[in-house]
């Protein structure tokens, strides 16, 4: 196995433990406190669903980029990677707008334990999206010059992982009320 791929899988495995700990903590507290449903009712399911759709679509582009990179077409791979960047950026902007409306409504990280978990889990995930967007931009620029095309697959594995984490955050924070 190439070193880069091994490294990305090691990152993914360690991230499973990090996010797994946060999600498991949230689930056990949520099950123990029925009152959290009152707080959870203030999150907007449609915003969460829209962001899920955005992440799903950005992952489609990264899959196309991987395929193009394997075919040796760096320019095409780069174009698809930039589309993924657009998706990730949209996700972060929507998240920022959502948080702004929640904070101005008085739901801050110190409002209650539910909101502490909400901002910690969603914030940690958003940081991973931002890191992914930065790496995607670097790899897109390299791919356009036909350089390091194997890295397209590596950022893809990371981006899919970020997407999978969101698959679980979405029902936990936006649907289970």
């Amino acid at each position: 196995m190439p070193t880069g791929r091994l490294a990305v899988w090691m990152v993914v495995v360690s991230e499973i433990v990090v996010f797994g700990g946060v999600l498991a903590s949230y689930i056990m507290h949520r099950l123990a406190h029925d009152a959290w449903s009152v707080q959870a009712a203030h999150t907007n399911m449609w915003i969460g669903a829209f962001n899920t759709f955005v992440l799903l679509t950005s992952s489609l582009f990264v899959a196309f980029a991987h395929k193009a990179a394997e075919e040796g077409d760096g320019v095409k791979a780069s174009n698809f990677l930039w589309m993924t960047v657009a998706g990730g950026t949209t996700f972060v902007i929507v998240k920022a707008l959502e948080w702004t409306s929640e904070i101005t409504a008085g739901y801050t990280i110190t409002s209650s334990t539910f909101w502490s978990f909400y901002y910690t889990a969603a914030g940690l995930h958003a940081l991973h999206v931002i890191a992914g967007v930065v790496i995607l931009m670097i790899i897109a620029m390299q791919a356009r010059k036909q350089m390091e095309l194997h890295r397209v697959e590596l950022i893809g594995i990371y981006w899919y992982f970020v997407e999978i984490v969101w698959f679980f955050l979405f029902p936990l924070l936006y649907i289970a009320k």
Partner: peptide
């Protein structure tokens, strides 16, 4: 196996 181990640790 590594992924499964991480999930088991979470459980």
């Amino acid at each position: 196996y590594l992924v499964a181990t991480a999930l088991v640790l979470m459980l």
